[in-house]
Computed example of a mutant assay.
Amino acid sequence: MQVLMLDPSAFTPPYDHHLCRGLSTVGCDLTLYTTRSDYHLWDGERAYDWIEYFYRATNTLYSDRDGLPGRTAVKGIEHVIDMTRFIRKAWSLDPDVIHIQWTPVPVVDQWFLQALARVAPLVFTVHNTTPFHGASTSRIQLLGADTIHETADHLIVHTETSRDELINRGIPATKISVVPHGILEYPSATAADGKADADNQTILFFGTIKPYKNIDTLLEAYAALPAETRDTTDLHIAGYPKMDAKLLQRWARDLGIESSVRWDLRFVPDSEVSALFDTADVIAFPYDDVDQSGALLTALQYETPIVATDIAGFAEVLTDGEHGFLVPPNDAVALADALDNVLADPELLACMRENISDLAESIPSWTEIAAKTQDVYRSVT
């Protein structure tokens, strides 16, 4: 079965890589069409074809100069050109299925998808039922985002809650399949045999920093920890900011916790991810919106308790009191209490680590996920 996979802006390189590698193991002849993503350099040879097809001129003109004016306009023009090229390419290849991971500009992409639908059946993975979590980098990205899926022959979601949400919007249940998200194993990633020695414990936040992830609530929660816990605990925030990080740093100063917060504001190289998680004693996900989280599916392999908000993407994976704690969104006091409960009780922390290890082993492998995805392909061909 020949499959063309499409993620023009490389929104989720780790997910793309794991899924494509899995699909290759179950017999799919697969090519991923995407853009350059230098910060995700995976070990070993790919078992699938990877083509840097999109935004090559933009990547060259604005290399290491993302802040220069005009980049969005240049990229937008190139997107139209590249999608037009991709349609011609798809016609020439005559694939069995075209699988769309992301549409960067839905209001424009809906026209291209209609053209692609005449080439081959379209499968669309709906990673977020709330488009861009309501926090897109441009208002234009939100235009048409609610209807972009209508052209697809079949939709894939990662949770039952996401499936129910789409059904509530009028999409037939027969058109939606739940295919779970697998664990994202970064290069040299292994489950931690023990935490690195350190004077203080560490609370870790890992992932792209966006408004819906509520770093401000995490800072408030850290400031609200009992003095005896806060004095022996550091807060490490690691990830590339897609918002004004200076506002968060100013908030940390206002809360009087500036000296205890480590800001690591960058794309963390793949080779450093394992060490980052290995030094954490508890991982915090204070989001107020998520369908499923790649950061969560990265964290599980490291046997570290997790404190997250009680929303679908976390609640369908984690059990409150076993793998950590689930707390209401935007509740700094509840978040602080949960963090303190884990950090102040070594026996509970050790028990939760063991439970997390068991949970990680229960997550479907990428070969199993690929087989389910292949079943979706067969249903539309």
Results as ranks from 00 to 15, higher is better:
G134P: 15
T381D: 15
D64I: 03
Y212H: 14
P329R: 11
I363Q: 08
G294K: 09
L276S: 12
H40K: 12
R253V: 05
A245Y: 13
G70A: 04
V123R: 01
E361D: 15
I51S: 09
G170N: 05
S63L: 12
L348Y: 07
A47T: 11
Y222M: 08
F325H: 00
L113I: 02
V380D: 07
D216Q: 12
L343I: 03
L300P: 02
Y302Q: 12
T60G: 04
E220T: 03
G70F: 06
N341W: 02
Y222H: 10
D289N: 15
E228H: 14
H127P: 01
A173D: 15
V107Q: 00
Q110T: 02
H154G: 08
I167A: 10
S357F: 12
G256W: 14
T229R: 09
A145M: 02
F86M: 09
Y55F: 15
D96K: 04
T304F: 13
I140L: 10
L318C: 05
R250N: 13
N341F: 01
V123S: 05
S37P: 01
Q249P: 08
W102Y: 07
Y377P: 01
T137Y: 06
W263T: 13
G313D: 07
C20D: 02
D49W: 04
G194H: 12
E368F: 00
L218T: 02
G134E: 15
D64N: 14
K75S: 10
Q141C: 06
F205N: 05
H158S: 09
G134V: 15
A192L: 13
A344G: 04
W91H: 14
Q110E: 01
L184R: 04
T298Y: 08
R88E: 14
R46V: 02
A360D: 08
V307H: 03
F132E: 07
A117Q: 12
E150H: 11
F314E: 02
P269F: 05
K89G: 01
H127E: 05
T367F: 07
I306S: 02
W366L: 01
V108L: 04
F205C: 11
P14S: 05
G256I: 12
W91V: 08
E258R: 13
V307T: 04
Y33E: 07
I209L: 14
D278I: 12
P286A: 13
P269T: 04
D43E: 08
I148L: 06
W251T: 10
P364I: 02
A344H: 07
T103F: 01
N168K: 15
G76S: 13
V282D: 00
R139V: 02
A196R: 09
D320C: 04
T129C: 15
A350M: 06
E228M: 06
Q101F: 01
F132A: 11
A198K: 11
C28V: 11
Q292G: 05
V333F: 06
D193H: 14
L143V: 08
D66K: 09
L343K: 00
E220W: 01
A173Y: 11
A189H: 06
G144D: 00
G70L: 07
V74I: 12
V107Y: 00
W50Q: 03
T367V: 12
V178M: 09
T129F: 10
L219A: 04
D270Q: 09
A252Q: 06
A152H: 00
V290W: 05
V342I: 15
P69C: 03
V123W: 03
G67F: 13
I148H: 00
T233D: 08
L335V: 00
R21E: 07
L184K: 04
F277Q: 11
I369W: 03
